[in-house]
Amino acid sequence: MRKITKVIACMLIPVFLLSSLGATQTQATIQGPSTHAQSAALIDVTSGRILYSKDGDKELRIASLTKIMTAIVAIEHSKLDEKVKVSPSAFAKEGSSIYLKLGEEMTLENMLYGLMLRSGNDAASAIAEHVGGSEEGFVLLMNKKAEQIGLTHSHFMNPHGLDAEGHYSTANDLARLTAYALHNPVFKRIVATEDKSAPNPNESWEYSWHNKNKMLRMYEGADGVKTGYTKKAFRCLVSSATRNGQQLAAVTLNDGNDWNDHARMLDFGFEYFPLVEVAKQEQPVQNTDVVTGRGFRYPLAKSEQGSLTKKLILHESRTQSETDGKEQSTDPSFGLAGRIDMQLDGKLVGSIPVYRKGSYIPPEPKTEDATLGRIGDVSSWTAAWRAVLSHLLSP
């Protein structure tokens, strides 16, 4: 068996970074879409780059957009076929409801559909108690996830979004949260669903839920995400759409004309910031013996494409014997050779691994593997690293 006893730390570099960059010079010169929102943001889901922001870091009430966090935390911490029981505190919760009965049991998966399609506050509380042991325990998980993702202007006090002091987020944070959640295939499937039926143990008829998100029916390519409203937060909306292989998500807080504003925001993103293929998988790097480990796409305006630079960083991949202390070359198939850093206007926007020609290159990770942690810290690089080790250590 081959020994791998010492790994150079610089190998563990993220493939994609959750963009926290301010507006680039190009973004500042392109006329952004007009909205009626108090705060708004537009993000490219693949890269995490915020393409447009209007008072995007202003901390505001977010109503039922809270349930985006509720759903992703529940999906990551529980199994979809688990039965969720409706407690007295979840039963007849104020606000929007899917009218669950006291003591009723429903699978977590169906409960999540009721949560996201009909914005059931009763479902939110039932899910929170099931996953977190109590609403308070679940809120701890919500705030921990916010910290992991890098949401620096968000704090949660409940799983449903009813107005509460200390419960807030921002358009930029919600855009980042949505981009993170949309990398999860279960979340992505649920929020794109227009109609869902579920068994009703107390009646002869089934539950039937029609998604409140009108964007699914009025915008070409729309595939999510969540509506929200309270008397203090006013109208809030997160929508997403996919065209030509690019998925965007738009956020507005306190917007009385949100359906039309979201259409304008999404149109703006698709028109001015399409995904550009910067590198292909297994593409030879000029004047070297290395190839790219995977492709890289990034949303770029036409005027930005000449500003994206690539920096090749190679390292010596070595191991240290535990027995004699002598350094030896690694196995030839262990060909991870370094990385290429992608920079836009001098700021790092992502990295891709490079491998020695002829060495094993792990396959592209599945979508769910690309979201092991926050988009900016742990992503496809970790999945690739694990695949390399699995290949080396296999009999």
Score class of each variant (00 low, 15 high):
326 K>P: 00
209 W>T: 04
85 K>A: 14
270 F>Q: 12
389 L>V: 07
288 T>F: 10
245 G>I: 09
186 V>S: 07
298 Y>W: 01
61 R>P: 10
19 S>Q: 15
334 F>N: 13
146 A>I: 08
213 N>C: 07
310 K>T: 08
112 L>W: 05
283 Q>S: 06
348 L>H: 15
290 V>F: 09
196 K>L: 10
90 A>D: 07
308 L>M: 11
133 G>F: 13
71 A>P: 03
327 E>K: 05
191 V>Q: 06
266 L>H: 13
60 L>F: 13
34 S>D: 11
107 T>M: 05
278 V>P: 00
47 S>E: 06
340 I>D: 12
113 Y>Q: 05
189 R>V: 08
315 H>P: 00
8 I>V: 06
246 Q>F: 08
242 T>R: 13
98 I>R: 05
70 T>M: 11
99 Y>S: 04
123 A>L: 11
354 V>C: 05
281 Q>R: 10
196 K>C: 13
393 L>A: 04
189 R>D: 15
5 T>A: 04
291 V>F: 01
355 Y>H: 05
206 E>Q: 13
7 V>P: 00
255 D>V: 02
90 A>I: 07
75 I>M: 07
264 R>N: 14
44 D>Q: 02
5 T>N: 12
46 T>E: 14
57 D>C: 06
114 G>A: 04
230 T>K: 04
111 M>R: 02
127 I>E: 07
282 E>V: 02
233 A>M: 07
353 P>G: 01
271 E>Y: 10
330 T>E: 06
111 M>D: 03
115 L>R: 03
55 D>Q: 10
275 L>G: 00
197 S>A: 08
173 D>Q: 02
363 P>S: 12
265 M>H: 15
62 I>C: 14
61 R>M: 14
10 C>V: 00
107 T>S: 15
204 S>E: 08
78 S>Y: 07
369 D>K: 04
220 E>G: 09
362 P>D: 06
14 P>M: 07
40 A>F: 14
230 T>Q: 04
260 N>Y: 11
30 I>H: 02
102 L>Q: 12
310 K>W: 08
110 N>C: 07
273 F>Q: 02
355 Y>K: 01
43 I>H: 08
394 S>T: 11
4 I>Y: 13
217 R>C: 08
361 I>C: 02
339 R>W: 14
274 P>C: 02
6 K>R: 04
316 E>L: 03
86 V>D: 11
137 G>L: 13
112 L>D: 02
384 A>D: 15
149 I>L: 15
165 E>N: 12
294 R>Q: 13
49 R>P: 01
107 T>V: 10
359 S>E: 01
58 K>F: 04
146 A>C: 15
294 R>K: 10
190 I>N: 05
34 S>I: 12
162 L>C: 05
256 G>W: 06
142 M>C: 13
293 G>H: 07
250 A>M: 11
47 S>P: 05
323 T>I: 11
269 G>N: 08
332 P>A: 09
268 F>I: 09
15 V>G: 12
265 M>E: 14
267 D>M: 14
195 D>E: 15
366 K>F: 12
313 I>L: 09
381 W>Q: 14
